[in-house]
Design a protein around this nucleic acid. Sequence first.
DNA 1: ATTTATGCAAATAGTTTGCACACGT
DNA 2: ACGTGTGCAAACTATTTGCATAAAT
Lengths: 141, 141
Amino acid sequence: MDKQDKDLKDAGLKVTQPRLTILRFLEGATQKHLTADEIYRQLNEGGHEIGLATVYRVLAQFEAAQLIHKHVFDDGSGRPAQACYELAVDDHHDHMVCVDTGEVIEFYDPQIEARQEEIARQHGYDIVDHALVMYVRRKPH
Amino acid sequence: MDKQDKDLKDAGLKVTQPRLTILRFLEGATQKHLTADEIYRQLNEGGHEIGLATVYRVLAQFEAAQLIHKHVFDDGSGRPAQACYELAVDDHHDHMVCVDTGEVIEFYDPQIEARQEEIARQHGYDIVDHALVMYVRRKPH
DNA sequence: ATTTATGCAAATAGTTTGCACACGT
DNA sequence: ACGTGTGCAAACTATTTGCATAAAT
């Protein structure tokens, strides 16, 4: 039993061809943040026949199992927002999206994290989740 | 010429009935964050005949003119994300959304703002915009 | 053998757009 | 009168779902 096989079982998911294929693809991908459609297209172009609906279903399951995280970066440019997915890793981080190139940069700042907790607490709330996205542009020169 | 009238002209928008109606509605609304559909429904129930498409178009124009801000709170529960809009005011703020009630709480934290600038700078970027949303739950007891 | 997963096509939800007509200046 | 704005219905996009078939245990 290999690693991905075990990961799926641990997540309570039956080990099926599509799930294995998608999980392996995500782990091997050069790009960390991928849309459902990108995953679908790249797999099929690579000879793996998987339906788009299945990609969505599997991603939803992976997300529920915390194997991956889903992000909805409102690209600001209006137009329909596409969700993207990335493999879950132990360390939490937030994102910067370059409005010119679409490039996604990850970062983590303990001060910000701490302030968030503090602010929620002051209002009488616990944080369930949070999303911080900075839309940025490469500084001239 | 009243205030809303002037606001529209200043934004470079012709003063039309739907635009005035929507702007006044937003300024008079008890709820600060409204979806396009809520605005559409409430106006029509209030006797103002406005098409949904027009509501969307006007909101898009208002957003472009910085009269309002658009938010896409990924309610986490999966399902299609609906955008909501709020009147732009001078002071910037971020949001907390209660995952149980959908309630939206606004907050502002200078430390977080400063850190964001700093982090972007360190990576060689300027911040164009940013969105911080904390999904929270009322603290037990 | 049974249960769960998959693929396809059709359905959905929110939002956008084409076009004929109405409005604002 | 002229250029925009509006309403309606049809189009679109991303995503979900129903259903018959195919896998996995």
